[in-house]
Computed example of a mutant assay.
Amino acid sequence: MPRRSLGAAALLGVLAGCGTSAATPPSPAPAPAKDTARQIQAALADCMKGRGFTYVPFVAPPLEFSDEQKKAHNGDYAAMKAERSKQGFGVFYNLVHPRRPKDLDDPGANPNWEIRRDLSPAQQEAYDEAEQSCQSGAITKVTGKVVKSEEDRFAQINRLIDQTVQRELDGDPELVGLASTMADCLSGKGHRTTSAKPTAMNLWGWKLFTAQKDEIAKNDDIPDTGLPAGQYYEPTRMSPAEARRHLDREIKVALDDLECGKDFHAAYQPRFRQIEQRVSEQFGVTG
């Protein structure tokens, strides 16, 4: 299933295959992503101090994945089959098995949450404004990337990832051939895909069921106002039994997708993850 930042990811300005003039010195190796993230946090803390607020530099630990999850993320057939047999494309699964929010008092959580929580409402508002401004400045200072907010940061990452995978993967002859074969197989199973491009084949099932879920959310009795374009509240009036029926259908399609795209996913997923990582690191995002 696709991982969106989050996040999260973005475009890399790499000129593949281009030579370098002997008169041009090589570019310095980029700092490790964790070091970049720490530098951003240090700059953020200094800025917040200048605004009169306490801020503790904090780099969240990377998401932990089991060995089987890592294999699935990299296109391993057996691992993907085990995952999809339970979660499908990962759309309706969370309605059947809701995630429990992380307790803000968890000792492993960001210490700045508690610092902010102890402020008055007026101070919290001022803290939030200062943090957003300081974070944007810190990201630009360390990475050279101009961002307006955390949301803008991840929006840029996602756009850049999309541009990079379209440029690098949609034009790859091997992936184009594997995607076409996958599309023909899915058509034979009664599934309609609108494009046989590699990037489209990677996401077609997730997009199909996400559109269904969004449509359900739009038509419940909770107004969907004030949300960014293309985003809707989760369905709130769906019974566990109904959610399970949607998930069962999603699982069936996800397994058809895997059977038809066994070779495609094995070739596509590792390259996609590499792009996702290297683009995210440009913005100081780890994990």
Rank of each mutant, 00 (worst) to 15 (best):
residue 182 M to F: 01
residue 203 L to N: 15
residue 235 P to A: 13
residue 186 L to H: 06
residue 183 A to S: 13
residue 229 A to I: 08
residue 199 T to K: 01
residue 189 K to S: 14
residue 234 E to P: 06
residue 197 K to M: 10
residue 240 P to L: 03
residue 187 S to I: 01
residue 227 L to I: 10
residue 228 P to F: 02
residue 188 G to E: 11
residue 229 A to N: 10
residue 214 D to P: 01
residue 217 A to L: 06
residue 235 P to E: 08
residue 188 G to H: 04
residue 239 S to M: 09
residue 212 Q to V: 11
residue 225 T to V: 11
residue 235 P to W: 12
residue 226 G to M: 08
residue 204 W to E: 04
residue 185 C to T: 09
residue 180 S to E: 12
residue 183 A to T: 03
residue 201 M to Q: 06
residue 210 T to I: 01
residue 181 T to V: 06
residue 224 D to T: 10
residue 241 A to K: 14
residue 187 S to W: 06
residue 226 G to C: 07
residue 230 G to W: 04
residue 229 A to H: 09
residue 199 T to E: 01
residue 240 P to V: 03
residue 238 M to I: 15
residue 201 M to R: 05
residue 227 L to E: 08
residue 186 L to I: 07
residue 204 W to L: 02
residue 208 L to E: 08
residue 243 A to S: 08
residue 195 S to I: 07
residue 226 G to K: 08
residue 198 P to W: 09
residue 180 S to C: 02
residue 212 Q to A: 08
residue 200 A to W: 00
residue 221 D to M: 13
residue 188 G to T: 02
residue 220 D to Q: 09
residue 243 A to T: 04
residue 204 W to R: 10
residue 178 L to P: 12
residue 215 E to F: 09
residue 186 L to G: 05
residue 229 A to T: 12
residue 202 N to H: 15
residue 184 D to S: 14
residue 239 S to Y: 03
residue 209 F to P: 00
residue 202 N to Y: 15
residue 185 C to Y: 10
residue 213 K to G: 06
residue 178 L to Y: 13
residue 178 L to F: 08
residue 205 G to A: 12
residue 178 L to S: 08
residue 238 M to G: 03
residue 190 G to K: 04
residue 215 E to G: 05
residue 228 P to K: 02
residue 228 P to L: 03
residue 184 D to N: 14
residue 213 K to Y: 07
residue 241 A to L: 13
residue 200 A to N: 10
residue 236 T to C: 01
residue 218 K to N: 06
residue 191 H to N: 05
residue 214 D to Q: 14
residue 200 A to D: 15
residue 210 T to K: 12
residue 185 C to E: 04
residue 221 D to K: 12
residue 237 R to M: 10
residue 207 K to D: 14
residue 203 L to W: 10
residue 191 H to C: 00
residue 237 R to C: 05
residue 202 N to G: 09
residue 238 M to Q: 08
residue 202 N to T: 02
residue 192 R to Y: 13
residue 198 P to V: 05
residue 205 G to V: 10
residue 199 T to N: 13
residue 198 P to G: 06
residue 241 A to S: 13
residue 236 T to S: 09
residue 214 D to C: 00
residue 220 D to V: 05
residue 218 K to G: 07
residue 239 S to D: 07
residue 188 G to L: 01
residue 191 H to I: 05
residue 239 S to E: 11
residue 194 T to L: 10
residue 227 L to G: 07
residue 194 T to G: 04
residue 185 C to Q: 10
residue 209 F to R: 04
residue 192 R to Q: 15
residue 225 T to L: 11
residue 204 W to M: 08
